[in-house]
């Protein structure tokens, strides 16, 4: 396999009595697009939060570019959560100033270009933007970084099909091609054709981790068909 950028060994995460992740062993290659797939509650968000260093206690080992999750790993991770995380009082310009100050890899010009392209008023307050525009603005902030790893947590959940396509076009067009993209979703058909690898999670365990082409060749099915069959209730 290519260079490993994310490595987890016997990763287990418990919330009280509930086990969200159980003995997860993964080696994710650099420069690839990886789909983190599974039904709701399968542990996708928990795994991304651990990689983003939002969850700091767990069992097992996690290495990101050779470092444990922390300040070093956060320098190279560009994370998009499944909620609004920009201040309601900010404008796009405030957000840009903030990202510019904290991330060396933030490309201000790229952010401004994307704002212009998506017709977002850089002086309009975040709270007065529509939900779709808020999502787009957050996506711009994430993509304007030349990050080593992009983490997208359900970037297309609750979005209409046309916008879903647009979001993925934007991601594919603007992410750092040398970086790794980890995108979590339960809407497999939408990322079917863009992922290099698929990690299927079920009840906190890795059910299957495989190269997308290999799976298609092996089963004669699309990822979506495979997912539906494997996760049928």
């Amino acid at each position: 396999m290519d260079n490993i950028i994310v490595k987890t060994r016997s990763l287990t995460k418990r919330y009280g009595g509930i086990t969200a992740l159980r003995n997860v062993n993964l080696e994710l290659p650099a420069g690839k697009i990886i789909g983190l797939m599974g039904p709701n509650g399968s542990g996708k968000t928990t795994l991304l939060k651990i990689l983003a260093n939002l969850l700091m206690t767990y069992e097992g080992e996690v290495l990101i570019n050779g470092h444990k999750p922390g300040i070093e790993s956060k320098r190279i991770i560009s994370y998009l959560p499944d909620c609004n995380y920009l201040s309601e009082q900010w404008t796009a310009l405030d957000a840009i100033a903030f990202f510019r100050d904290f991330y060396d890899d933030f490309n201000e010009k790229k952010a401004m270009r994307l704002l212009e392209r998506l017709r977002i008023n850089p002086r309009q307050k975040f709270k007065s933007l529509s939900k779709g525009t808020k999502d787009k603005l957050q996506l711009i902030m994430v993509l304007a970084r030349q990050a080593g790893i992009y983490l997208f947590d359900e970037p297309i959940a609750g979005v209409d099909p046309a916008t879903r396509e647009f979001i993925f076009e934007l991601i594919l067009e603007h992410y750092n091609k040398a970086g790794t993209v980890i995108v979590s979703t339960h809407l497999i058909s939408d990322i079917e054709n863009i992922v290099d690898y698929a990690v299927f999670l079920r009840e906190g365990e890795v059910f299957r981790y495989v190269a997308a082409d290999e799976l298609r060749k092996e089963t004669g099915k699309s990822l979506n068909e495979y997912f539906k069959e494997a996760f049928r209730c």
């Binding site: 260093n53 939002l54 300040i71 956060k74 995380y85 201040s87 904290f102």
Partner: peptide, 17 residues
């Protein structure tokens, strides 16, 4: 707001201690 609501996602993913 900055630490314990959804804005915490930005605060705690900053490369600072």
């Amino acid at each position: 707001k900055k630490m314990f609501t959804s804005e915490g996602y930005l605060t705690f993913t900053l490369p600072v201690s």
